[in-house]
């Protein structure tokens, strides 16, 4: 515990570094997954090429998660031409993992909207575009929220892997604590990682309450849990 008390400034700095990587990755995963998930869901019931497109979008995005994180973080700079220890590599890698979870969640969320409601909306004169924004997306909200919460937790945890490349995050407390055999430092890293995950989760729930105030009056129908992953 002494170590923790003597290094509060360092711990605070690492926590901020951690947030600066995890938060953009979570937001990017969400923003990118909605259109991809929409395409995957839209053509799920069709056939031929479009069905194939939908199926492969889901299968392929899911498999992104099978890529071990360490080699991915190392290979990305070679592919996209960034510096090896540019935090943007980790942000992109984490975004890919987030997409892997979030595309299926989005497709499932959109599928959970009652087709009768969609037809009613069309009948009331909504165009395809405004129907998506004003009817489908809000109704899919709760399942989308469930998905982004999983993405958030696993992204916060995976951010630590970047430490192996010297990218500053709470993960550096593990590598340094292990070398110096200071368990307090490792535990501090673990506890803060969980704490960040819990706080971000709370913020997401709060956003959900603010954006979907109707949820508590009449809970909408929902899909099963999305795949949940933390791989490293």
């Amino acid at each position: 515990m002494n170590w923790v008390l003597n290094n509060l400034a360092l711990i605070g700095e690492r926590t901020l570094d951690h947030l600066a990587i995890a938060v953009p990755a979570i937001i990017l995963s969400f923003v990118l997954s909605v259109p991809i998930g929409w395409v995957a869901n839209r053509y799920r019931a069709s056939n031929g090429v479009l069905l194939w497109l939908s199926g492969s979008l889901l299968a392929v995005s899911g498999l992104l998660y099978a890529i071990p994180s360490l080699p991915l973080f190392l290979a990305l700079p070679a592919i996209i031409g960034t510096g090896l220890r540019d935090p943007i590599n980790v942000v992109i890698g984490l975004t890919l993992y987030g997409i892997a979870l979030m595309v299926r969640a989005t497709a499932d969320a959109l599928a959970s909207v009652d087709p009768n409601v969609e037809q009613s909306a069309t009948a009331m004169g909504f165009s395809g575009w405004s129907r998506f924004w004003k009817v489908e997306l809000p109704l899919a909200g709760p399942v989308l929220l469930a998905g982004i919460r999983v993405v958030s937790v696993s992204t916060v945890s995976l951010t630590t892997v970047g430490a192996v490349l010297g990218i500053e995050s709470l993960g550096l407390l593990f590598t340094d604590g292990l070398q110096r055999n200071i368990p307090g430092e490792i535990y501090a890293g673990i506890v803060l990682t969980i704490l960040i995950a819990v706080v971000l989760d709370g913020i997401l729930v709060l956003c959900g309450r603010l954006l979907m105030p109707w949820r508590h009056a009449a809970a909408p129908k929902q899909q099963a849990p999305t795949e949940l992953v933390v791989n490293a």
Binding site: S154, G171, I194, V230
Partner: peptide
């Protein structure tokens, strides 16, 4: 889920 496996 938030537990980092390498740390563990």
């Amino acid at each position: 889920r938030a537990l980092p496996t390498l740390g563990l």
